[in-house]
Design a protein around this nucleic acid. Structure first.
Length: 583
DNA sequence: TCTGTCTGCCC
DNA sequence: ATTCTGC
DNA sequence: GCAGAATGGGCAGACAGA
């Protein structure tokens, strides 16, 4: 199949944001796609070459793409930077670079989807010493044989950001329209996607066998299914209004979500994004062997625990477990507990259509709790007041908040609906503090943030030494309008180099005189290898940083830079936090 | 062999 | 992870 | 309200290059 057909469809899609038009164009593309290449076209449209659980990585992103452009086009390094700043899109830069290129061969073979896909596979399969140069050569080869337009989408696909306004759900819609003649059939395709987690496979089935083919697909222990997700609400009253009066409240633990498959004592574990992470948790196998059953799929939160008293440790500690080497030491040094909260499959029975109440009951029957294995604490309640009390209690015990669950709710794989609702402390304004931080630098925006700053580097004030030390970046919370206003305000503050009163290890595109003060919220303070606030005060060569920073929408015109949150105040906050990283 | 940079994936 | 926005 | 696209801190691993 000619890759130009794909690139041209993408180009058409880029011109509109209307969902119906996008659907029509995508459907048109699928009509022109044979069953032989449909899987590959689907994966490329997802910006990947295989579903995540295959563990195949391209290992090429912004920096390497820029290197390729430097090497294989006539565009200078400076010009590439300049165009990247101007367009906010490496695909566009590639298009411009290739347009400038002197045509070396007049007649060249048409670029095919097969060629693009297999080159991506080659890039993914290249590892070891000298692999970077080989990857660059693979991509250069592709770019030298394509049109500027094709180059644009090859780069966007490679970096995983198509920016077309289409993703999984639109692909499902389009497949339904193209191959079953009715968008309403999406729900059947969606079900197959949710239990197979492989969009290419769904497409292939529906192309070759139609709707009947989908019915043959069932949950298979060992194949990951797309996890059910939760919506967010910010008060107990909203939750009561949404759910009714009877519901289950579950503690929300701060760890990693695991989908654990057991088949005749053989354990495989998948992450939220369905990566196979079995090797990260070799100890889970023996933990799960306590449950005596032929096969099952359960969901759990793995949390790092204190060796002595079993209390929960911060997420940062658990992250030491996501590793490939020295697993034995990690298991020893970073013990975990497995906290079950759902069961999806049990003893050859698919439980996704059972109620939460029943699934939870089964968990209670089969699990014998011990130091390493637990069921997430829950409570059935009937009033807003009970929600607030239980939220308070969960936080006191070192949790992030609550997940509220509809008792009659089935397990809706892949869906983010109001059957599950997250309530975290920081969603409630009265339970979270704000900070006033000064803008000291910025990074150019990409994509729809082009010609603005995408993120701002913020600092707290160290009074004793009269210095502004970096504490976090912020890139969310502003409306488009606020982003524009802040961009304009900051133009007057631009300076050539880092200000003498600014202490930052982080690099930015633009430095500012510390002047503009923003109000920021976040979830908690972490120990930071990169930010310089409170450097060395808790741990040598580490500062403090803010996790999940958000702009509240308030620019503090009333505050001077010297009036902002001080590093001493940050330290006090840090000490108040229940959970702290052990030194 | 050590260190810095880049990438991918947890949240 | 959170947030904003077009449809 | 859905679906998509912006953006955060921080960890380990893979490489390049000194």
């Amino acid at each position: 199949m000619d890759y130009n057909i794909v690139a041209q469809a993408y180009e058409d899609m880029e011109k509109t944001r209307k969902r119906l038009e996008l659907l029509e164009i995508l459907s048109g593309l699928f009509k022109n796609t044979s069953s032989k290449v449909i899987e590959r076209v689907i994966y490329l449209t997802q910006g990947k070459i295989k579903p995540d659980f295959y563990g195949i990585e391209l290992g090429m992103s912004d920096k390497l793409v820029i290197k390729v452009l430097e090497k294989s086009t006539s565009m200078s390094k400076n010009r590439i930077q300049e165009e990247y700043k101007k367009t906010g899109d490496l695909g566009e830069v590639t298009k411009i670079a290739l347009s400038n290129k002197v045509q070396t061969t007049l007649v060249k073979d048409r670029l095919t989807v097969e060629r693009v896909y297999s080159t991506f596979e080659d890039i993914a399969n290249t590892t070891g010493h000298g692999s970077v140069d080989i990857k660059i050569a693979h991509l250069s080869g592709l770019l030298s044989d394509c049109t500027p337009l094709e180059g644009k989408y090859i780069i966007r696909t490679l970096t995983g950001i198509l920016r077309l306004g289409i993703a999984d759900y639109t692909v499902l819609d389009a497949l339904a329209v193209t191959y079953t003649g009715d968008k309403k059939n999406r729900k059947y395709l969606e079900r197959t996607y949710n239990i197979s987690s492989d969009l290419g496979k769904v497409a292939k089935i529906v192309v070759e066998k139609g709707l009947e083919g989908l019915e043959e697909i069932n949950i298979v222990v060992g194949n990951p299914i797309r996890p059910m997700l939760a919506e967010r609400l910010s008060s107990s009253q909203e939750i009561i209004d949404k759910v009714g009066e009877k519901m289950s409240l579950e503690y929300k633990l701060d760890g990693e979500r695991l989908q654990i498959h057991v088949n005749k004592k053989q354990v495989s574990i998948f992450s939220r994004k369905l990566e196979n992470i079995t090797n990260h948790y070799p100890d889970v196998s023996s933990i799960m062997s306590e449950i005596n059953v032929e096969n099952m799929i359960v969901e759990a939160e793995a949390v790092a625990i204190n060796k002595e008293d079993g209390s929960y440790l911060p997420f940062q500690e658990l992250m030491h477990r996501r590793r490939k080497h020295k697993i034995k030491e990690a298991v020893e040094n970073y013990p975990i507990s497995i906290n079950l909260f759902d069961i999806i499959f049990f003893d050859n029975e698919d439980l996704t259509n059972s109620s939460y109440e029943r699934r939870r009951k089964i968990l209670n029957i089969i699990v014998k709790k011990n130091k390493k294995l637990d069921i997430v604490k829950n409570k059935i309640i009937r009033s807003a007041e009970e929600i607030d009390n239980f939220l308070e209690q969960s936080i006191e015990e070192g949790c992030e908040g609550l997940v509220i669950k509809d008792l009659q709710g089935t397990y809706r794989a892949g869906a983010r609906e109001y059957l599950w609702i997250k309530l975290k402390r920081e969603y409630k304004s009265e339970m979270s503090d704000t900070l006033d931080l000064v803008v000291i630098g910025a990074i150019y925006g990409k994509g729809k943030r082009v010609n603005r700053y995408g993120a701002l580097l913020l600092a707290a004030y160290n009074k004793e030494e009269d210095m502004f030390r970096s504490f976090c970046k912020v890139g969310t919370g502003f409306s488009d309008e606020q982003l524009r206003i802040i961009y304009e305000k900051l133009q007057k503050c631009i300076i050539k180099d880092k200000h003498v009163m600014v202490d930052s290890k982080m690099e930015v595109d633009v430095w500012f005189k510390p002047n503009i003060v923003l109000e920021i919220t976040g979830s908690e303070i972490t120990i930071s290898p990169i930010h310089t606030a409170n450097m060395n005060e808790i741990r040598k060569d580490f500062g403090l940083a803010l996790r999940f920073p958000i702009f509240t929408g308030r620019i503090r015109e009333d505050k001077m830079a010297q009036d902002i949150t001080t590093t001493m105040e940050i330290m006090n906050e840090y000490k108040k936090q229940l959970k702290k990283v052990i030194n």
